[in-house]
Design a protein around this nucleic acid. Structure first.
Lengths: 230, 230
DNA sequence: TCCTTGATTTTGGTCAGACCAATTTCTATC
DNA sequence: GATAGAAATTGGTCTGACCAAAATCAAGGA
């Protein structure tokens, strides 16, 4: 019984989780180009989801050109994703966090010199939201992500925003990264609110060096937590 | 009443027909990035199709990165097909170079602590290739790009490599950036070989701070040259 | 034995309706 | 005007039904 893996983040909907599982099957060599996937009804039973959900997942694969759906016949493999085709597939959680440490540190330093009071208030609210997320069972990282992207936005540089957003996307897309972060969450390691507050304090003081240091310390702690979760 | 256009081919399924109609709406300017599409139930009535069919069409758009679906809220336009389809369309050459200054500086610092003699020799060869490019009429930047990506590779961090590669891709894809760099080239502003040599020297000395400074000075000079070319 | 035809089964496509969770909007109170 | 709670709206998933297209099977004829 290949039950659908539990969602790796609260952003995931069931169809996405199933699509991901099916893509993993394609990648693993279970199917070759031309093979027919199991029928919708079969997949529905196998993964213990409803048939419309299966349909949605198959459509996600179809739109990405991975399968070719023939009415009355089935879904046929059109292209097998290679490992290198999934951005971030080969990037470890350590590498990702190390890169974020270096790059987000610089973004925080740049943001410190031009951040508005409005942006600081928004960050305060997000710190409170992170604290609230820490108390909830779901393990959502929505506020944490928004926090970091708000700092990037305060740089007022679209290339920096794009880069940091891409790093977060890599994090979301990397199976290895997702697994490690999931382990960290089940080990009850959550974003440390004090570290986030310290970043906001440094930004509020318009101190680039302090902002850089605070962000680096925060992400260095994330690195440590990943080690602990390994 | 915007009934779904009749299928354009017997292969078309309803969800595809509807997805196509929605994409046409996006392309026509009816919606801007950030706008919310009508609710599923509304679209179901408007197009006289079932709600699951609407969902399937929205998923097709979502997987293509055209919309962002938020549970309980709606489907928001993330990207309008057409002019913004090229990543980096709205990123200026200044923003890009500023981001590179911050990020490639850090990559150079990290590379300095672990670069091999082999990698240094490769960088020497690339500096010579940059000098040769400067003498040629074509204005190729192949060696310049390879130089920067080699330094990124010396960090031995796939996330950093990916990020710097993306920044170079943004540069290649951005029309505004291409235009400015073209202006710089016609003004006979070329990569300064001494600046590249200075970066390699700092790396050869395994001096992270010097490497960071050398890379930042180089990219700061690129920023100045863009100003001159404006 | 092989081929053809028709019946049956399987497959995907779409629909209707129900219920739940998340978010937004509205209303009442202070 | 601000806040809290209720109501409404939104997307998410499910069950069940029926239809069209395709595949498979069985029977009959050459």
């Amino acid at each position: 019984m290949a039950a659908v893996p539990s969602p790796t983040s609260s952003f995931d909907r069931l169809y996405q989780t199933l699509a991901r599982a099916l893509i993993a099957k394609l990648s693993s060599g279970k199917y070759a180009v031309g093979d027919r996937l199991p029928a919708e009804r079969e997949l529905s039973i196998e993964y213990d989801v409803s048939r419309p959900t299966v349909r949605e997942a198959i459509i996600a694969l179809e739109v990405q050109g991975l399968v070719d759906v023939r009415v009355g016949s089935g879904a046929y493999v059109k292209r097998v994703p290679g490992k290198t085709e999934i951005p971030g597939f080969n990037i470890t959680a350590f590498e990702l966090t190390e890169a974020r440490l270096l790059f987000e540190g610089e973004a925080a330093a740049l943001a410190a010199s031009q951040i508005t009071d409005e942006e600081l208030n928004e960050l305060d609210a997000l710190v409170r939201a992170i604290a609230a997320e820490n108390l909830s069972k779901g393990g959502s990282e929505r506020a944490d992500r928004a926090f970091h992207l708000s700092i990037a936005a305060a740089t007022r540089n679209a290339a920096i925003v794009n880069t940091i957003k891409e790093l977060w996307n890599l994090r979301a897309n990397s199976p290895e990264s997702a697994l490690l972060h999931e382990k960290a969450r089940t080990a009850n390691i959550k974003p440390v609110v004090d570290e986030h507050s310290a970043i906001v304090d440094a930004l509020r003081n318009r101190d680039p060096a302090a902002a850089r240091t605070a962000m680096r310390m925060h992400l260095s702690a994330v690195l440590d937590s990943l080690l602990f979760a390994t």
